[in-house]
Design a protein around this nucleic acid. Sequence first.
DNA 1: CGGGTATGCGTTATTATGACGCAAAGTATA
DNA 2: TATACTTTGCGTCATAATAACGCATACCCG
Lengths: 269, 269
Amino acid sequence: MRLVFVSQNGSSNEVEQDLEDILQRGGELYHPGFSIDCAIFGFHANQLKVLLLKVKNTGRWALPGGFMLKNEDVETAAARLLKARTGLEHVFLRQFYLFGDLARNDEAFNRQRLRKENIQASAEHWFLQRFLTLGYYALVDFAQAVPRPDYISEDCAWWDLHEVPALMLDHNRILDKALETLRLQLTYQPIGYNLLPEKFTMTELQCLYETILGRKLDRRNFLRRIQSYGILRRLDERRDGVAHKPPYLYRFDLPAYEQALRQGLNGAW
Amino acid sequence: MRLVFVSQNGSSNEVEQDLEDILQRGGELYHPGFSIDCAIFGFHANQLKVLLLKVKNTGRWALPGGFMLKNEDVETAAARLLKARTGLEHVFLRQFYLFGDLARNDEAFNRQRLRKENIQASAEHWFLQRFLTLGYYALVDFAQAVPRPDYISEDCAWWDLHEVPALMLDHNRILDKALETLRLQLTYQPIGYNLLPEKFTMTELQCLYETILGRKLDRRNFLRRIQSYGILRRLDERRDGVAHKPPYLYRFDLPAYEQALRQGLNGAW
DNA sequence: CGGGTATGCGTTATTATGACGCAAAGTATA
DNA sequence: TATACTTTGCGTCATAATAACGCATACCCG
């Protein structure tokens, strides 16, 4: 299932104006030969979703990405891109790998994109150079994120992770590596705060874990383990309207959660 | 303790010739605004060591680093730099973080370096631009690594990790982050193959772990745990000449070791 | 030849983990 | 209204992993 949202005009205080302008002036604005791509994960209907853009003139879907301004921290640039695409700030956002193979560049592909925008470009044009791309992954609250296409894309949508198509360039590899990192992270850090609504059931949290790990977990053992982390608070509230025994609602104990983020959960040594 | 080695002329088949040449032609040769810095770890006398360079005209020590050629994979560039500094190939070498704060750059500092080399440089000179640096860490066999200064340095030496001085630019932070990553890696991957000689005692391996973790471990529990990983083979040989009961020698079971590298040790979930 | 020291091989108590049982509380259906 | 069905909440039990520690041994050294 692909959820399509109505495009919103998000170019209020953005640096980026329109594609033609960017392609012309990018050389002055951006740090050369460097881009950022984000795997933005959300969780909805017990499925892990990833936000993808449909890139103009290519017919391909891709990870949201962009460039870093010459006077901008890498971290700030990634946060700016995330906000531009989802409207969200202060969410979990972490770099995971710099992709720097020669093979990841495809000059012919990019040249064609310029041509379709009717842009004259010499071989030295900034957009035709080799790019290193830094992968970031973000975990966001699906309900609060409002996908918006950017200047380079004609569509923006949440995709079910199992249905992601062949992406532009090496973006499938980037997405795979993001997932792999996320899975590893699960073993030594808490997760969920930015992916679930404020109140949630234990089963929903378990579903999140199962989705990331790609396998089923025992419900009762999961409860015991999560509780041992001491990052959850069970509320006196239950979710009702369900066709069975109403489950308790939980919320994260934010101070404890953030401490666990810093200190790790239960490192082996 | 600082171990100083006699400089060897390692500029045989290197790309890099001399400092002046590099600073002049770097703009043509290298990917712009991007560098690589390596935290090269070795283990000797039951101490974790890191290889540092003394940078010409600055009086400062720094992590070995360099630039990536325009037609070179990032991974290849890192391996090239490592080989140039230690002579070693095919060792454990892994990127861990891209440092991209604006604050990490110090144009005045670099301008002074150029001035001391009597190089005329306009504000657009490639060396004076903002640089992102990708951190790599390497684990090498101390005995086989032969430190060699490069075109940019006047000395090259192993430093005890606890005695590392204030380094150039943000290199202390890079080194700290490398250690932190190494520590984390210890919890889900085997370590030691590239840091210890072929045959070693269990106590030596334990010392390595203790050094990285920064705390003492119980000798008997350590043995049991390491054995459970199934990556060691005990030899019928003992180390003698020691003033106590001669300990067995071990070696890594390479196939099992490499499988553990790929699959992880015993992930929590 | 005895002191000093690190080694090899244990034990024990406690905690963590995996697999599973079962009554309760709701809705859906008959 | 009664029954089926599902998921929940809480629990058990056997086994594995972990932490803390005991002790005789084998070597060098003086």
